[in-house]
Write a protein that binds this DNA or RNA. Structure first.
Lengths: 216, 216
DNA sequence: GAACGAGTCAACGCGCTGTCGAGAAACGGG
DNA sequence: CCCGTTTCTCGACAGCGCGTTGACTCGTTC
């Protein structure tokens, strides 16, 4: 949800009514996690690594986070909020044709996650194992699906795009493509698109899928 | 590679020169793995579960497989070989237009992996952690990319498809879409396409991407 | 019948996770 | 100024899953 409640509100009402000493530790853990993720996957990072990196002992770690995954979730929450805001801005930007809107959205999506490569890859890999990560990602994905579907329907309504599969289905397929292609290109695993080619190729597929005639 | 060497050749030259008793155990382990994967993810299945399910003790398991992942790899190898053969057949089938070829290929892809839902999902989830799984999947993926790229180039050469991004890049993007959409629909996680909609929607995107004009 | 190799398992060591209970350190009211 | 309360800290424990070791059985082979 990226509500920030699990972070801020709990902080306010529960812990830390006056003293600000332990907040640093929490930040230190997050920073350590981000740093270690640059060099190895989450599965190769133990709670002990995180704790030592933050200058505390392992049990103390559990005072701040329920698990390793909770740290990742907290990190993901920030990035996802950032991405969502950037994406909303890209869509709502007044200037240019709708096609330029797609272009802006795809570049923004790509740029945001590329700026947090290690975290993005780690989350993609943790998703199957962590219900929370799955839920959080599912929510933003659903939001983007709806946003895209709305735009597609608007384009169809004004006659700019032809009829086709349900706009929602198209959006799911295309966003899935973005996700997988981006992951491949960031993780460097297997056959992947080279960095500079990612956006133009994705854009091309989006444009033909949205504006192209179906089988004639 | 699905070369079968790690399975068959090693079997022939190393172990089992005469006695056939232990082969059943190996099959029992594979069968147990496939059965247990129907009900829970690989991460929730221990080597002990596999061993007990096959009626042997845990150390004995290691006589047959190097690890849990090796079992999965062995299972994946079979499915991937099957999928590759089916896909090759779909492409090489003489009848119909090239567009029908795409349709056959996508349905075949979908049908094959759907028939092994649990295994497919497990492999997708194990891929980040297992270099062998990653390598095997990477190989078949690359093979499919090349096959698709070849067809796209042929279509362009005969004037049926317009110029566009490098055929290889297009193939990577579209196959990535297939992979992610199929995984989503099989794992039932997050926003996904409903089973019957998967093939038509994917096909539509493929056709517009390959045959549609780019931004005009 | 000795030597060999396939197959089997109890027992071990390791690294990881998460928890418990006993403290130290800071506040807040009497 | 002391005392209870809350925040924070960690040593030590319990448990699980992995992969290995070493010894033991049993059929085969020479």
């Amino acid at each position: 949800m990226s509500n920030g409640e699990d972070d801020a509100a709990v902080r306010a009402r529960g812990r830390r009514p006056a003293r600000p000493s332990g907040d640093d530790r929490e930040q230190a853990i997050l920073a350590t996690a981000e740093r270690l993720l640059e060099e190895r996957p989450l599965s190769a990072i133990s709670v002990d690594d995180l704790a030592r990196g933050a200058g505390i002992s392992r049990p103390t770690f559990y005072f701040y986070f329920a698990s390793k995954d909770a740290v990742l979730l907290s990190l993901l929450d920030r990035v996802v909020t950032e991405a969502d805001a950037a994406l909303r801005a890209a869509f709502d930007a007044p200037a240019g044709s709708p096609r330029e809107g797609w272009q802006r959205a795809i570049s923004t999506y790509h740029a945001t996650f590329r700026a947090h490569r290690a975290l993005t890859v780690a989350c993609a890999e943790a998703r199957p194992a962590s219900p929370e990560v799955r839920a959080l990602w599912g929510e933003v994905f659903e939001r983007w699906v709806q946003r895209c579907a709305t735009v597609i329907e608007a384009e169809r309504a004004r006659g700019a795009a032809p009829a086709g599969p349900p706009a929602r289905d198209l959006a799911v397929a295309l966003l899935s493509m973005n996700e997988r292609v981006l992951y491949g290109s960031l993780s460097g695993d297997g056959p992947a698109l080279a960095e500079p080619d990612v956006v133009p190729v994705l854009l091309r597929v989006w444009l033909t899928a949205v504006y192209g005639e179906g089988p004639r």
